[in-house]
Nucleic acid binder design. Structure first.
Lengths: 344, 344
DNA sequence: TTGTAAGCGTTATCAA
DNA sequence: TTGATAACGCTTACAA
């Protein structure tokens, strides 16, 4: 259990003052004579010196750290997002503290407090939708907040990175409509969430474009947690005039929904055409492979990190930025024309 | 951008000294008169005071943080593990800094340095297998290291949490053997890894128990990264005397392997009986649902966190501990008796 | 039981 | 271009 060398040890060994060493460490903070710089660098190397993050943080008042607040790392979408963000951050010398909320506002509030204690420079989050004042306080304390995937309508002045939710839902729905389907089930997130709203909006817009009326019974907004997807599938298929198409636009409920379809023994696409939101790695391993809306996770990660880092370095105009990236529709084999669908 | 209150502000407002406030914050560090304690608590609440983590870290020399170093968060196994660890840590007031190595020793070394800078109290990791001296240095600096899932043979004095690898592979293999299969392919991790070795060991042990000789050609140790699983599948099935059973014991290569099976159009279990390591959420959504070895991820998470925290608080005997948890074999529909398998 | 004051390892200010 | 030295906010002897 040795003690690590400090900046003072380095200074002493190099025969200079601590300020010189500090300036070698942070070049933009001041000039250093080339000769001394070499000497210092040599000593640093020899001693294996590394600056203590805590000391720097205390002095600077801010940590080279961003908080990542996601709902559920076990969800492949968030997991991949986290993977990319962690990776990207590392290349900028920034560490990521990960928190999970499990969609619970209390845990979210807790997480934010903790991140505040750590004086993180920024937070990337998929907000639960609650804690509006908490988010505001966080911002007022100088923490840069970027929402990814979802946002909170009440909260202005916050950067947002998401896919084109309205458009994605519209395209998926139009695909079904153009195949002749007229009763299309939609399983989406809570209407209280930005994604839930936007995707319903897109679904409706598509119907309007095709001059088809929408049946409220076919729209199911279910919570992200729990088995709501499966239940919705069950009740949709139990409808007297059951849908011939199904769009699962709630990323967290895709698995639950598909599991139920498999359990019930629904033949896809003969009995039901299916499109799901988000290209989980397994969606092409089912039979048939599922047609999906593929979220460009890498883009989401890169942009959100770019935004926090940009704000951290004050290199961005103050106006909040909203970045919407396009999500691809990836047709596979889970949709077929209505004519070929079982006529009952 | 307000400035947060400090311990001094609290002390002043409560009419006490900073040490009293500190003692209220850390009860075990000394006594406080009940009356003053209440007063301080009141002020803390009123001011919304929260101690700055960096200041405490600098003072005590250690952070209430553990580093989590995994190979790839995009892999559902690691993602779920991370989710549980983060969750569990939170309930102990500990934060988790996540790093990914992508199985690259350089990135791993980098990550360890960074964690050292942060003075983390402990590290939970799935080591690449390299960086032995780096791990040792980390320990010598007082950082508690716990390996989870895999370990490094050369490194003693380190806690390890894993499944019963030998036994799991043995049980999977015996299942196949008892179904009459005599040529069973094994796709596993590199022999340089503890899991790779152990699982091959279990595979061989099962064969011995059944007095069946093993064909080296059937054993494929492939890297965790890349498409080695798929390639191994391809070459195994191209063998003149091709296997009738396949065990994929490389968690990171399951997807690649199964994808290839699907691409080739192999009928499971008619053409090939299959067992894969790790119950990814989708393994029961394929057709047929796959028989799997299920790793008790929650147990792995709980134990590894328990170990780091235990060591952090010095509540554990110095001897390194090895915890092996049992992995369940979950039979589904991807294995059939040899007699029913296509006779060629 | 309480208060004073000395660290902890950086950065930043300001003379020199 | 350099070097003292004062923060930064907390913990912890040590005195009282």
């Amino acid at each position: 259990m040795k003690k690590a060398p400090t900046i003072r040890d380095v200074a002493a060994a190099a025969g200079v003052s601590v300020s010189v060493v500090s300036r070698v460490l942070n070049p933009e903070s001041g000039p250093v004579a080339p000769a001394k710089r070499e000497a210092v660098l040599g000593v640093i190397n020899e001693l294996g010196y590394r600056p203590r993050a805590a000391a720097r943080e205390l002095s600077v008042g801010q940590a080279l750290t961003v908080g990542l607040v996601v709902a559920d790392l076990a969800n492949p979408f968030f997991a991949q997002l986290a993977d990319r963000i962690v990776w990207e951050a590392r290349s900028h010398g920034v560490q990521v503290v990960v928190m999970t909320t499990q969609e619970d506002p209390h845990l979210e509030a807790d997480s934010l407090d903790t991140l505040l204690d750590r004086s993180v420079a920024g937070v990337i989050a998929t907000p639960t939708g609650a804690n509006v004042e908490k988010w505001e306080r966080l911002q007022s304390m100088g923490v840069n907040v970027v929402f990814v995937d979802r946002t909170i309508a009440e909260l202005e002045d916050v950067d947002v990175v998401s896919i084109e939710n309205v458009d994605s839902a519209r395209r998926a729905t139009e695909h079904m409509l153009s195949l002749g389907h007229r009763r299309i089930g939609l399983i989406t997130g809570p209407v209280s969430t930005s994604t839930g709203q936007a995707r319903i909006h897109g679904y409706r817009a598509a119907h309007e474009a095709f001059s088809v009326s929408t049946d409220p019974q076919l729209i199911r907004d279910v919570p992200f947690r729990g088995d709501g997807g499966g239940d919705a599938v069950g009740s949709l298929l139990a409808l007297p005039d059951r849908p011939t198409g199904l769009i699962v636009a709630n990323t967290a409920q895709v698995q639950s929904s598909v599991r139920r379809l498999v359990q019930i023994g629904v033949q896809i696409p003969e009995d039901l055409s299916v499109i799901v939101f988000d290209d989980n790695p397994w969606t092409e391993l089912t039979s048939p492979p599922l047609s999906v809306i593929r979220q460009p996770i890498g883009m989401l990660a890169v942009h959100s990190l770019e935004l926090v880092l940009g704000r951290m370095h004050g290199k961005l105009p103050p106006a909040p930025r909203t970045i919407e990236v396009k999500a691809d529709f990836v047709p596979r084999s889970s949709c077929s024309p209505l004519l070929l669908t079982t006529t009952r």
